[in-house]
Simulated assay, not measured.
Amino acid sequence: MTGRVEGKVALVTGAGSVGGIGQAIARRLSEEGATVYLGDVDAAGADARATEIGGNAIGLAHDATSEAGWADVLCRIVADRGRLDILVNNAGVAILYPIEEMTLERFSRQIDVNMTSAFLGMRAAVATMREAGNGGSIVNISSVGGIVGLARTHAYGASKAGVRVFGKALAMETARDGIRVNSVHPGMIETGMTAPLAAPDPEEQRQRIAAMVPMARMGKPEEIANCVLFLASDEASYITGAEFVVDGGMTAQ
């Protein structure tokens, strides 16, 4: 099946990293016919990823933690295309420390980048989608860390759990508007964010991680992107307030 999001307008945040989940999502949406805006605080990275994707991909400088930044980006998209059909809240960081080393500054930064940015994005997107009156799809990238407890992920897990439940509550508010809100929960995915876990012995660490996963391997960004594509498309027209775990069975144990 091709053209699954043909003619739709999408914004993917945190899409400027090489080999990241955001880049993979933007590419899949573009391949299936959407005009895709790639937002990132790293404007050069967003432009570069958009250029790599080609034709219907546009890079934007976008600080997802800034209220004014969201207003500017949505105004730009509406001015260009007249509407926003798909928002993927993907921007995030993982700040992992033992509890005694988790300063208030670090904790606040974790919540700000992962959860506050998603709140700002959902609020801005809902207003834009309601004004257009065509419904829409919001997909929040959470994590298995937002479902189960993992060592040193207390702040990260709190931010991702917040995104998960916030989205569920918002889905109840927007269902009658035809605006669907769902979350995707990646497990161990091979990206720049998980690269530090592979040091100092990459192969030994890779095997240790794989041993935690029933499918015995780390996931690929494209496998997250395929799930997001489904939720963004009309194939998921009766799905809202749901969570989709893409973790090779890790949390089913």
Rank of each mutant, 00 (worst) to 15 (best):
T13C: 01
G14Y: 01
A15G: 14
S17I: 05
V18H: 03
V18W: 10
G19N: 09
G19R: 11
G20W: 02
G20Q: 09
G20Y: 07
G20C: 06
I21W: 08
I21Y: 03
I21D: 10
G22N: 09
Q23R: 07
Q23L: 14
I25D: 11
A26S: 12
R27L: 14
R28Q: 14
R28K: 15
S30Q: 04
E31N: 11
E31P: 04
E31T: 05
E32Q: 14
G33P: 00
A34K: 06
T35G: 08
L38N: 00
G39L: 08
D42G: 04
A43N: 07
A43P: 03
A46K: 04
R49G: 01
E52Q: 09
I53L: 07
G54S: 05
G55H: 11
N56V: 02
I58H: 15
G59D: 05
G59S: 10
A61R: 14
A61E: 11
A61H: 14
T65K: 01
T65P: 01
S66W: 11
G69Y: 09
G69R: 10
G69C: 08
G69S: 10
W70Y: 15
W70S: 06
W70G: 07
W70V: 12
A71D: 15
V73P: 01
V73L: 08
V73E: 02
L74D: 05
C75M: 05
I77A: 09
V78H: 03
R81H: 15
G82V: 00
G82Y: 05
R83T: 12
L84F: 10
D85S: 09
I86P: 02
N89I: 06
V93H: 00
A94Q: 03
I95E: 00
P98M: 06
P98Y: 07
I99H: 08
E100A: 00
E100S: 05
E100K: 01
E101L: 12
M102I: 01
M102F: 12
L104N: 12
E105T: 13
E105Y: 02
R106W: 04
F107K: 07
F107W: 15
S108C: 10
S108I: 01
Q110E: 14
N114E: 04
N114W: 01
M115I: 03
M115N: 02
S117P: 10
A118M: 01
A118P: 00
A118D: 00
F119W: 13
F119K: 02
G121M: 02
M122R: 02
R123L: 06
A125P: 11
V126P: 03
T128V: 14
M129W: 04
M129D: 05
R130T: 12
E131D: 15
N134R: 15
G135L: 11
G136D: 08
S137G: 08
I138P: 11
I138C: 10
V139K: 13
S142V: 07
S142M: 11
S142R: 06
S142P: 04
V144S: 07
G145C: 12
G145E: 03
G146E: 13
G146I: 07
G146W: 14
I147R: 08
G149D: 11
G149P: 09
L150H: 03
A151T: 13
A151Q: 15
R152C: 05
